[in-house]
Nucleic acid binder design. Structure first.
Length: 553
RNA sequence: GCGCCCGUAGCUCAAUUGGAUAGAGCGUCACCCUCCGAAGGUGAAGGUUCCGCGUUCGAUUCGCGGCGGGCGCACCA
């Protein structure tokens, strides 16, 4: 329905410009969507304001002219009931009821595919998120990144992108050595050997557990007989395997999917770091100064140039990162999405610079910072200390409040704003808990269908759905795809979460005002179709958020 | 000192990326099941959108200058 009207308004703009001998600037666009206030019709259009910038005519005058042009293009059986000029230049379309309701037939027909679009056609997206160093269990901060990244991956697929999600595994470098030495020290300690614990070592209980695991399941005390270098290396490999096992288990239980775990080590093994620097050098972005090798990131808006190879001959962290992003480029991905924690935000300009130097256009690079989460219990912030009985890990969180609530709470706010996570609320099975509010709506409809004791049919008289509550709900359902496109374009899944609350609210409102199953058989059929369409949108939306859709609760 | 993010109802957050009278939930107060799930719904109250200037038909949104809060500023990872 919207598309049809869009075609007509597009054509009207063309005619108008021809008349005025005006040329539209590149990137000209306008809005055509349901207005906030339903008093203003079913679809509202602001072309007059936009064209005013081009031709410098008064918006109201342009609106009058284009309305005339649109009128001329409408067929006899047009779905537009009337057009109204309002607010000094808005053109508001009022559609015929039965055409407005036609979206219900569409929803029923497309079912699991309803909401899909071609928006991302031609885009090959690679998402990088979580990417926690395997030096400890996943934290709540990682959990939020995981939930947001995974939801976005699902949404991008649904809106027509090719999507590949990747976990960048930092399994090389100093932190890994530190982990290995920490485990080695605990191993010795457990066997009663004297050994000082490394100064910056990892002190968490899990390190001792890993050491104990080695003793009990693998090596007993045999590592003591090997050269220390070998023994430490063994501890490191064992620790990574152990911790990655735990991390992968968390992600699986959180329903977070990764297509690939990309190992930093392989970059060195395949000489890809050298290769990446060579590529940059050939493009003329590298130079030497004071014995170090520098990347001229200031060419791409960074504050200062960055060292990629220290005067000692070692690489900085940036070097393998450049190699990793070159690999993304060479694998043909034309849309980059990286989610990082707030401690990395200073790193954005230099990585963006690197990506642009490698050939990415600025619009193709999306680097998002996911802000931290504070847990609240009984209104008080939960301190993230390691003391017993208090939260530290992601696992403790989802085991307490459940995966559905965890995922929903993590994505429901704009990701760059700090999140307050109310544990008591997340567990509450009531209206106040937003995830239950959504699931309740879904369950309510499922229960309703059972009660009605009749199947859903599309042979209904859509003209019967005339009340404001019905119109509002229909309008809401018709915007599913629009919101998904917005979420994709902005790489912000919270928009979907917000939209679904609107859907649920519209449905509850409709439901409490009107009986669905009545003596009037035709009306019952029409309302059942409306309810079922709502169920489909809720189901598809919850699925995209990775949240279950219960038939009963 | 420089850079980035944030500042909207008492609290937690929206506002279709510059659109019409800034909206929800919680909390407060007053209501609605003889009836499909009350795990819902209706109404009231609550605002100088941190302040100022600017850009224009129009600014919560964009620009500049302040104020307040958070974070980052390595030949660390």
């Amino acid at each position: 329905m919207k598309n049809k009207i869009e075609n007509i308004t597009d054509a009207a703009i063309k005619d108008y410009c021809e008349k005025q001998k005006a040329i539209l600037p590149n990137g000209f666009s306008y809005d055509l969507h349901p207005p906030k206030d339903s008093q203003h019709g079913d679809l509202s259009c602001n072309i007059a304001f936009k064209l005013a910038k081009v031709t410098h005519e008064k918006p109201a005058l342009i609106a009058a002219t284009t309305m005339g042009l649109i009128q001329g293009k409408l067929g006899k059986d047009s779905s537009i009931e009337k057009m109204v000029l309002a607010g000094g230049g808005f053109i508001n379309f009022y559609l015929k009821k039965e055409d407005l309701g036609a979206v219900l037939l569409e929803i029923h027909k497309q079912d699991k595919n309803y909401g899909k679009s071609e928006f991302g056609k031609g885009k090959k997206a690679i998402l990088e998120f979580v990417s926690a160093n395997p030096t400890g269990p996943l934290t709540i901060a990682h959990g939020r990144q995981a939930a947001i990244g995974d939801c976005l991956a699902r949404i991008l697929k649904f809106t027509g992108h090719t999507v590949h999600s990747e976990y960048y595994l930092n399994d090389a470098g100093r932190q890994m050595r530190m982990l290995a030495q920490s485990v080695w020290a605990r191993y010795n300690e457990l066997l009663g050997m004297e050994m000082p614990f490394p100064e910056e070592g990892y002190k968490g209980d899990y390190v001792r557990e890993i050491a104990r695991d080695i003793i009990e399941k693998e090596k007993k005390d045999s590592l003591l007989k090997e050269p220390e270098e070998k023994a430490v290396e063994y501890c490191g490999l064992y620790a990574v395997k152990y911790l990655m096992g735990s991390i992968e288990e968390d992600l699986a239980r959180m329903r977070v999917h990764f297509d690939h775990y990309f190992s930093e080590k392989t970059l060195y093994a395949k000489n890809e770091v050298e290769h990446a620097l060579k590529v940059l050098k050939e493009k003329g972005y590298l130079y030497e100064n004071e014995g170090a090798l520098w990347f001229r990131s200031t060419d791409f808006g960074d504050d200062k140039d960055r060292v990629v190879k220290k005067s000692t001959g070692e690489y900085t962290y940036l070097a393998p990162d450049i190699a990793y992003h070159l690999s993304k480029y060479e694998r043909g991905y034309n849309m980059l999405v990286n989610f990082w924690g707030p401690d990395h935000h200073g790193y954005i300009p230099r990585l963006k610079a690197a990506c642009r130097a490698l050939g990415y256009s600025p619009e193709a690079i999306h680097i998002g910072i996911i802000q931290l989460t504070t847990l609240f219990r009984k209104g008080q912030p939960v301190r993230m200390s390691t003391r017993a009985g208090e939260f530290v890990t992601l696992r403790e969180l989802y085991e307490e409040v459940g995966v559905d609530a965890t995922r929903f709470f993590f994505v429901m706010r704009r990701q760059e704003s700090h999140l307050d996570f109310d544990l008591d609320l997340a567990k509450e099975q009531s209206q106040e808990n937003p995830v239950f509010y959504l699931q309740y709506a879904h369950a309510r409809i499922a229960s309703l269908s059972k009660y009605a004791e009749q199947g859903i049919t599309t042979k209904v008289d859509l003209k019967l759905l005339t009340t404001p509550e019905e119109a509002e709900l229909i309008g809401c359902l018709s915007q599913f795809s629009d919101y998904l496109i917005q979420a994709s374009r902005s790489t912000e899944p919270y928009r979907l979460a917000d939209y679904l609350r609107q859907v649920a609210a519209c449905f509850h409102k409709f439901y409490s005002h009107h009986r669905v199953v009545t003596e009037n058989k035709e009306l019952t059929k029409a309302r059942l179709l409306l309810a079922d369409a709502t169920r489909i949108v809720l189901r598809n939306g919850l699925e995209l958020l990775g949240i279950s859709q219960p038939e009963s609760m």
